[in-house]
Design a protein around this nucleic acid. Structure first.
Lengths: 319, 319
DNA sequence: GTATCTTCTGAAACGCGTTTCAGAGCAAGC
DNA sequence: GCTTGCTCTGAAACGCGTTTCAGAAGATAC
């Protein structure tokens, strides 16, 4: 495979001139430029991206760190990131962590070893304190709340969003409300619990179900829910998938929704529409785009920024 | 940031010796080895992955080419690929093409420019003829049927799978069957049509619906289906998501399933379980793993291989 | 005692683009 | 006529690990 020196020899110019032709530098005479182009064509020259990367110190890659690939929730973020990255000639490297700290560390080590220029983290187990220690090696943008100075954050304001979801339920006449959360100790779950206690008069501990992440978890929830003596009249989920699992299982048992219990989802996954799921629409693709864009801006010298996004009620038939 | 030469100077050894220590080469005296380790610790040495890549010619990266990130169908493949890749110290670069030929070409150009060591293609618009022209630059493994010599393929045998799905429907007493396909001209769709005509006595052109990819397409199908004079008694979908969209819309219209029409999906997406969707379970995660493993084997000198996988009926309540 | 290994070490070349710097030639400015 | 500035060119250094090759020292074999 021909390299730049082969081209230089073949075209009888210096490597500098070849490099200039490749990079469209103006100070090359038309004559030599043509000779170089001819030589490149003749020898089938392909620029070696690795050499370029080593030379410039820029990899044109960003690592996207997320717990699960096969959870549709993250796909929308990744879609937004991928689109923005492609538009800017960046490639994305995916790292699946399953919330294992060691995997998160390995993923961020890519930054240290200059395999990527920046990191985008969709959800994490790692403390922000530890995350900050990687900041020296490149920009980091997260989709979670509570990021300290130095780390960009484009996130859904889970407190405000849960408040507005609760208000939607209340406007529909539901006062006794339960909430379904994923990881109990995550910052977003804490914010949601806070909103719950602040806004729901009848809030009670046993109406908070934690550890529900997938549609299967939603199916499982049906038993847990029905076995309770005193049940809330509405359930506010933190994920459409869990809500759909629950909804499907209730339908299977021929328990009418919303009569048995009203259901409000969270995400706005298109599949929810098919089943009339009422939900809070979250602009995840947009967040993905902005995560990339803010990381890119930081690479170009901008300061880290924090942006909170809000969700919108999307009407359905489960309220 | 300290490089290998700084370490050499600090430890008063040659760069060769430092390199040997890094790579656990045996021929280094304990004394020098210790000095080098101390120097690396002292100066906070981090190996530059780019230099290593340029030097060895191996990137430890594989590009995964797929049409849509936000279509859950592909997530399971990617999950399998990601797991296998991580286990082997490979990183995956994602390239979303939306079935645009130019994007597919750009993605495969990564191979040419040595940004990745191999390519895994989940679905493509590009002809195999064109794809083969990239083979000289690295192994290519596809998840589609019909790959020529030189290109590895781990795929679902769509003909056999559709045949077995049709047999399931027939065993349940359905003779008048329609099929729902995604892209009309893709090899998998052609194989499915062939199976349909071969196995269904009452097969007819107007019972083949093409262009259905998402759950929204499934919703839209309800009108198309109901507006037909003569309707099949069962529908065999090529995607669970489309099937679920249709199922949800039928439920919304209070048209009982399977009395109005039986539904058989294809994939085995977990969300289907919540709604009792009968489906043909496809081992997509396993296919993902094998795609990576066969690509890895090829990088190590093995020959391309082709493996066809079969699907399994997963019982539900829509038949 | 000499031949043959084995262990250990480092200089230099290699992978391959980019960038800096110095210099040559020529035109415009005053 | 002399200075200034622009256009064009290429040698060499740089980014940073790995690998080849040559050689020295010590150990083992016969």
């Amino acid at each position: 495979m021909a390299n730049i020196r082969d081209i230089a020899k073949y075209a009888d110019v210096s490597v500098t001139t070849v490099s200039r032709v490749i990079n469209d530098h103006p100070y090359v005479s038309k004559e030599k430029r043509d000779r170089v182009h001819a030589a490149m064509k003749e020898l089938g020259y392909l620029r070696n991206q690795q050499a370029l990367t080593l030379s410039t110190g820029k990899t044109q890659r960003v690592v996207v760190i997320l717990p699960y690939m096969d959870h549709p929730y993250y796909s929308f973020f990744v879609d937004g990131i991928a689109k923005a990255a492609l538009e800017n000639q960046y490639r994305i490297v995916i790292w699946q962590t399953e919330y294992k700290l060691s995997e998160e560390q390995q993923a961020l080590d890519l930054l240290k070893h200059r395999e990527v220029d920046a990191a985008i983290i969709l959800s994490h187990e790692m403390s922000f304190k530890e995350m900050v220690s990687y900041r020296a090696y490149g920009p980091i943008a997260v989709a979670t709340v509570g990021a300290p100075k130095g780390i960009s954050s484009i996130h859904v304001d889970h407190y405000a969003s849960f408040v507005s979801g609760i208000h939607v339920l209340q406007q529909h006449g539901y006062e006794e409300i339960g909430i379904i959360l994923s990881r109990s100790h995550s910052p977003s779950s804490l914010a949601r619990q806070q909103a719950y206690f602040d806004e729901v008069a009848s809030a009670r501990e046993q109406w908070i179900w934690t550890g529900y992440l997938t549609s299967e978890d939603g199916i499982r929830l049906a038993d847990e829910f029905l076995s309770q003596k005193e049940r809330p009249r509405a359930l506010f989920f933190s994920s459409d998938y869990v809500a759909l699992g629950f909804l499907g299982e209730m339908q299977r048992r021929q328990l009418p929704i919303p009569e048995t219990v009203a259901i409000l989802g969270f995400d706005g996954n298109p599949i929810g529409k098919a089943f009339g799921l009422s939900t809070m629409l979250s602009p995840n693709e947009t967040i993905g785009r902005q995560l990339f864009e803010t990381a890119l801006a930081e690479m170009q010298g901008a300061s880290p920024q924090t942006t909170a996004m809000t969700v919108m009620y999307q009407t359905g038939t489960t309220l």
